[in-house]
Design a protein around this nucleic acid. Structure first.
Lengths: 331, 331
DNA sequence: ATGAAAGCGCTAACAG
DNA sequence: CTGTTAGCGCTTTCAT
């Protein structure tokens, strides 16, 4: 039938075929409500007949809406983002948007530069973990609709996962197991989350009249687990809370190598409950973060903002402690 | 300085500022070679001065090139794709393309439908694990430049990971450990990879004059591990090769529950070496697949095809056996 | 090497 | 409700 090499059919073809103006075709296809039932039928029939497929680019140029939203992450490599990619993907698809994936390689420069460059081809962006200073963020938000995740900046809608509350639970848990020397394994200093977690940890320990100490900071990545494990051991602590699960899992490996038993000799708590935390050895006690949900909510916020009133809010998602086998009584 | 609400600067502004035609500005910016050094300088200076940012949509509409490539996966949820997302992301960024992520939810219908709809807004697509029958694939390839991964269809450039060769190694490994009853844990039947692996397994076992049996098929996902483990146990085999690591890891969990020791009572081999395979309990012996590399190569193939001659080839990437602790001598 | 002019395919006032 | 008329911002012949 088709030879596939024919000039693609446009609304002009449909207009010709049905004897109406192109604008009417456009309406019938994009805003069926604004056209009489009769002509609408005819036009849609013709469109089907001719196997018409709208040209997204043309539509975007004329309307200013691209139907595309970007998810911006600092490092696709980080399993933490997998959940976010999932969540945003699902919700964006449901809302009829295309999903662009941007990796900033942990650089604020890249982040601002890429978004600046692509701003005309996006309807909005979700910043998975912005490395940008507050003022840059606000400036960016003025160029393109933004929603941040785990990053609270005045004026920019955001969804934050309340890990600090979870940290308090974790400390409670460890204290109730008899631990008194609990150390925080610090992640990258530029990380907003890292700061928040450390603050929460200090506060929680103080409430128990315990001193707060930390080791690190260590760079992102499982590899940091080695140095981190050694540092914790060296600190003399009997329990630790790691910046994230990647660290914690890396530590588990290292501790095993060194013949340190978990949790008998050292209890370790992770953060985020990423893929793998439940089948590591031992399974990791961790703060389960609703990452996927965060992604979905972020999309909802953005989409409702794009399609309705500019209701800019902040959403806080709870975290809870999932106790598995990497924590136990102080021996 | 800026109030951010000014009309965005266009090439017309640059043309006005430098006293040349818009076409010259266009050339100076997109094909610097086609313009005299002097005017090129002036134009580029003006562009910088005015903080000009090209409008990707307008460019796309006029030129037909969108600078966007889609990665199509059947389920973002599957950790197998994480590596592919990484690899394609890296290489696409390097080549200056934007990275669109499409999830087909395991449905061939969705796959063809979404690509058909978006074809005008893409320069090409990489099919991570197409569910499409060969003829549909060929038809699609006629609409939009395609590269497949782990799917070999005549006329469509592809990169396939040679897991079958790896399977042979795995069988060798198990046989050398004394196993004679080795069962294959089958994945979804529509999966091309699953078929290929089973065939390879049969062939390898035959070479050793051993019978080939399989359990399943089971649906994708870690959850299948439970049923799979039970089925394998029931088969009386002392070793098994699972369709993929997700299955294998799920099995590990189930076997532990049932008090079956791995590898003492049962050896298990996975496929792909996804994130987590090295820190599961016990760490998984598996076929390490260069998934990330596959993603990169797929992008290279596609990009070179988009920018040069249509050299359509198939690339085969090797797999190797990574022996960890989930396999051991037959007891 | 540069300019003029014609679109790319669609949407969006503005009339009627 | 529908047609007319302008563009959206850029690339691309075709002249010069």
């Amino acid at each position: 039938m088709d030879d596939g090499r024919r000039r693609p059919v446009t609304i002009a073809d449909i207009a010709a075929a049905t004897g109406v103006a192109t604008s009417t075709v456009s309406r019938a296809l994009s805003r069926p409500g604004r056209v009489s039932a009769a002509t609408r039928e005819r036009i849609q029939a013709a469109a089907r007949e001719l196997d018409y497929v709208p040209h997204p680019t043309a539509r975007a140029l004329a309307s200013g809406r691209t139907g595309t939203v970007a998810l911006v992450v600092s490092d696709v490599t980080n399993p933490f983002y997998f959940g976010m990619i999932r969540g945003t993907q699902q919700q964006l698809k449901a809302a009829g948007y295309a999903h662009l994936l941007i990796d900033t390689e942990d650089s604020g420069e890249h982040e601002i530069e890429m978004l600046h460059t692509m701003r005309r081809s996006l309807d909005g962006a979700i910043l998975g973990a912005s490395r940008l200073p507050a003022r840059s963020l606000v400036a960016l938000a003025d160029e393109i609709p933004l929603v941040t995740v785990n990053r609270n900046v005045r004026g920019v809608p955001s969804v934050v996962i309340d890990t600090p509350a979870g940290i308090a639970q974790a400390v409670e848990h460890l204290v109730s197991l008899g631990h008194r020397d609990i150390v925080y394994v610090s992640g990258p200093q530029q990380s907003w989350s890292n700061q928040a977690r450390w603050q929460a940890m200090k506060a929680a320990l103080e409430r128990h009249k315990l001193g707060a100490q930390r080791v690190g900071p260590f760079p992102s990545g499982r590899g940091s687990g080695t140095a981190a494990a050694d540092a914790v051991l060296n600190s003399g602590a009997t329990a630790c809370v790691a910046f994230n699960d990647l660290f914690a899992i890396g530590m588990l490996t290292r501790l095993r190598e060194r013949g340190v038993r978990v949790p008998a000799d050292l209890s370790v708590v992770g953060c985020d409950d990423i893929f793998g935390a439940d089948f590591s050895n031992p399974p990791l006690t961790t703060l389960t973060a609703p990452i996927e949900q965060a992604g979905r909510v972020a999309v909802s916020l953005l989409v409702s903002r794009l399609e309705h009133q500019p209701l800019r809010r902040a959403v806080v998602l709870p975290t809870y402690l999932t106790v598995r086998d990497s924590t136990g009584p102080r021996r």
